[in-house]
């Protein structure tokens, strides 16, 4: 009974004409994505993230390799909700929720949520909120990484670190953002669409069709 519609890749990536006004379901699901991804990070920390913290401190910027996965919320938000501000909203809500739950970075969490969200948001805006394909996902992930790096220059005092460290850290964060947030986020949205969970969203209507 299930068939995948024979849409061409280009048709899949281009959103049909839609209003930019947020529906209630856009807002609530964006918030839910923020909360769920935030929770997943907490669970992940539980499973065995401690080693990364140590690696982050001791290696010269190589800790950035795993940073990307933390940026996935904004990419998911942008790809699923497809409204202006979606990437930013998801990252910001996630940051506020984790600040409320009490994490180590205090108010910085909210600033980094803002910065990462803006990074990803800029990419979707650049494509006028019309295209939501793999390219946009990867660019959004990379941009979120770059934004996080930039903010840390000031907020974490990273400007006081050596140029070699900063260059290495920039490279790893951006690549990590592109792959772990961008590529993984895009694959995740496709898999989510296949479950029918996104049937109220354009992202879900494009990929799969039930006859």
């Amino acid at each position: 009974m299930h068939t995948t519609s024979p849409t061409t890749p280009s048709a899949r990536e281009v959103a049909p004409k839609r209003t930019f006004r947020w529906r209630v379901v856009d807002i609530v699901v964006a918030a839910v994505i923020a909360v769920a991804t935030g929770l997943l990070f907490l669970f992940w920390n539980n499973i065995g993230y401690a080693w990364f913290v140590a690696a982050d401190a001791v290696t010269p910027g190589l800790g950035g390799i795993a940073v990307g996965i933390w940026l996935i919320g904004g990419v998911l938000g942008g790809l699923i909700i497809r409204k202006p501000g979606a990437a930013l909203f998801v990252e910001l809500v996630a940051a506020i929720v984790s600040a409320l739950i009490g994490n180590q970075w205090g108010i910085e969490t909210i600033y980094s949520g803002l910065a990462q969200g803006i990074g990803a948001e800029l990419v979707f805006a650049l494509f006028l909120y019309r295209r939501f394909g793999l390219t946009q996902a990867i660019l959004a992930g990379a941009a979120a990484g770059a934004a996080a790096w930039t903010l840390e220059l000031f907020v974490s005092g990273n400007l006081q670190k050596s140029a070699e460290f900063l260059a290495l850290y920039f490279g790893t964060v951006v690549v990590s953002g592109a792959v772990l947030a961008g590529l993984v986020g895009w694959l995740l949205v496709r898999a989510l669409a296949a479950t029918g969970a996104l049937s109220r969203f354009a992202a879900g209507q494009d990929v799969t069709q039930r006859v």
Partner: peptide, 10 residues
């Protein structure tokens, strides 16, 4: 059997 290839969540 008619659902063998379907996604369980659907």
């Amino acid at each position: 059997d008619h659902l063998a290839r379907a996604n369980p969540f659907t």
